[in-house]
Design a protein around this nucleic acid. Sequence first.
DNA 1: ATACACCATGGAGTGCACTCCAGGTCAAGT
DNA 2: ACTTGACCTGGAGTGCACTCCATGGTGTAT
Lengths: 133, 133
Amino acid sequence: MTIAEVSKKYGVSADTLRYYERIGLIPPVHRTAGGIRDYTDDDCNWVGFIKCMRSAGLTIEALIEYVTLYQQGDETIQARKDLLIEQRRLLLERIAEMQATVERLDGKIERYDQWNQRFSQQLAQSSSKNEQP
Amino acid sequence: MTIAEVSKKYGVSADTLRYYERIGLIPPVHRTAGGIRDYTDDDCNWVGFIKCMRSAGLTIEALIEYVTLYQQGDETIQARKDLLIEQRRLLLERIAEMQATVERLDGKIERYDQWNQRFSQQLAQSSSKNEQP
DNA sequence: ATACACCATGGAGTGCACTCCAGGTCAAGT
DNA sequence: ACTTGACCTGGAGTGCACTCCATGGTGTAT
């Protein structure tokens, strides 16, 4: 597959694909004799994997380390697994934090609801200032 | 409260607090006669709220709009509520995406486990290449 | 009253993660 | 062989979200 095809398939610009390869966020891509990138299925899977992990918020740093370990061969399998486990833990931590934020928003939204109720009851009577942040 | 105290309390640098105020991410903070910031409880609550929302990933853009609406008074209550509901929805969407990524990581980690099992069974026999991304 | 730590502002600087560009190479169609 | 469009590289440029800095004002303790 050409870089344009991979770009389209994964919704990642060709520039970004080259950039990812340059910084080691994906392993070197297979090339034609002329030096043009010719993504194999494995290369594509790396792109998909990295895209998924990046959009979930894994740091570039951690992913580069994973790729680096991968390229060092079978001796690093335990290290790679440990890395993934740690990143999974961080991800769950962030999910929990975001869940807490959802609940905070729920509380705020509910207070707006209550205000609306009071407002419709008091329509055309006195007006009370709404002071919630 | 002085800016230094607020900075310490919320773990946000004084520069960032001033920056947030400047771009309208928090409403203007109360000042002393001499022009020095003197955060009220309300000002502090804004800082806490914005910090929480930012670290959950809400965009600065959306939060500025929320603050802008807030400053326009009671007429914007419905709009503010709608904004929060929409942001809540986006947050849940991202949580779901991250949850899917956790599951993808689980699958990968499990495959590393299986490889380790095979490896310890085959110890000192043949070596098989590990090809998972 | 003066020293000195803290605070103010406007503007410049930083690091990240791309994104764009110039100048040149490659390859598919005619 | 030639045109044309996609691709190559190295390097410069961009936008965001801060972060730092120079210069000058504030306010409290001695």
